[in-house]
Design a protein around this nucleic acid. Structure first.
Lengths: 224, 224
DNA sequence: ATTCTAAAAGAACGCTCGTTCTATGTCAAA
DNA sequence: TTTGACATAGAACGAGCGTTCTTTTAGAAT
């Protein structure tokens, strides 16, 4: 079987045209408008290529509906941040993060999400991570000052229990009985947790007593 | 003349329906779909109300174009952050902010903006301020630590030379020869500049030697 | 009581637009 | 050379869809 995800130059042009068209007009183009833009004289050929793009996962179509085309997969993910033709991901704000308690993450993040607790996040802030794996917590209190994070900040996290050296993590420390945000470095049997604040000293804990709650992707401070 | 900006309950329903429809489907509804949703049996009546909404500035329409309707003004600005039916504002990233130099703001922000230097910002982060008045600067160096801002952070600013007490400002201090971000308090002839970091002391400067460059709206830390 | 305007209904018209079918050309594999 | 998948063109059909016109009703202003 031939490569199904490969798309032709003409199909790339269709995607590019659709991005700018939707961005500028606020609604998708018709088949004939696409044809005119990319130099295809027949509606059936445009239709043919659109179906290819659906197969490749770039588009969704609604049958027998004028302009029933929707962009799904960006052609160049890096440029999406300047293009509103794609939907901006909305991340569930599922709770607070305080020093005195472990972060509580519902097992199933898909359910019981209140519309009011979704925050819109620029795609570029997710570093290519699937938005469905990401959640947000609001920082309560000034205990995260050593991570350069203040009260009211919103922390974007990806649920994972292992991280690479240098990444910032949310960890629960058994011995101290607190949650903290630090840069993580595995050093043999123990773990070095380095504050983001450059003048503050790292702490060292036993790896067994350090429970990673998730990786910190970015921090947002909505108002100052 | 009667109030032109007031819209009826039915027209509010139309806007609400359009928000969710565009959000879910990726394209705007037809006149008949709107009518069915809000309980209007005649296409001409929907058309009538749509034109009212255009007059009130909530919509734009493209004549004789199927689904040629676009949302402009959000019904409830606070809720826009969870709705991608509106375009996410893109803010020009026009330079860096360092302690050692005043922020340089081009007189005309509308021109010579490179596409690659636009950053997408959730509407809720602008506090209702017109996006065209907002610009972004990237923080260089660790000199803003007392404002809980670290190297690489992106600061959203609104160009203005006066602010209210308590707001965070970017100011240029003649005597120190530096730009800093502090909470602003006018105290008679002088100005108290309070660091965001709770344990740090304020500084006091003569109001005449304190040049406000802009008001800080929010702070974004793209990756940690 | 009359007049004016907003709001709504319904029908008819005609362009818009997706779909489908047939036909032609290209190129690589058999 | 033949076969078959792929790509493109063109045309015709029918439903989709915005526009416009005529009426009707309700309420406010004169």
């Amino acid at each position: 079987m031939r490569e199904r995800n490969k798309i032709s130059e003409k199909q790339r042009n269709i995607l590019r045209f659709m991005e700018t068209f939707i961005d500028q007009k606020g609604y998708p183009p018709t088949i004939r408008q696409i044809g005119e833009a990319v130099g295809i004289d027949s509606t059936s050929v445009v239709n043919y290529n659109l179906n290819k793009l659906v197969q490749a996962g770039y588009l969704e179509r609604t049958g027998r509906t004028s302009r029933g085309i929707r962009l799904i997969k960006p052609l160049n993910p890096r440029r999406v941040s300047v293009n509103s033709a794609y939907n901006t991901p909305r991340i569930p704000l599922i709770g607070q993060i305080v020093a005195s308690a472990p972060v509580s993450i519902p097992e199933d993040m898909g359910h019981h999400i209140d519309d009011d607790n979704l925050i819109e996040v620029p795609v570029s802030f997710l570093n290519g991570i699937d938005p469905s794996e990401v959640f947000a917590l609001k920082v309560k209190g000034d205990s995260m000052i050593d991570a350069m994070i203040s009260d009211g900040d919103i922390v974007l996290l990806r649920r994972q229990d292992t991280v690479s050296d240098g990444q910032m993590v949310a960890v629960w420390l058994d011995e101290r009985g607190e949650t903290t945000l630090k840069h993580f470095f595995a050093e043999g049997p123990r773990v070095r947790l380095q504050p983001a604040h450059p003048t503050m000293s790292p702490i060292y804990v036993d790896a067994a007593h350090c429970h990673i709650q998730g990786r910190v992707l970015s921090v947002l401070r909505p108002s100052v």
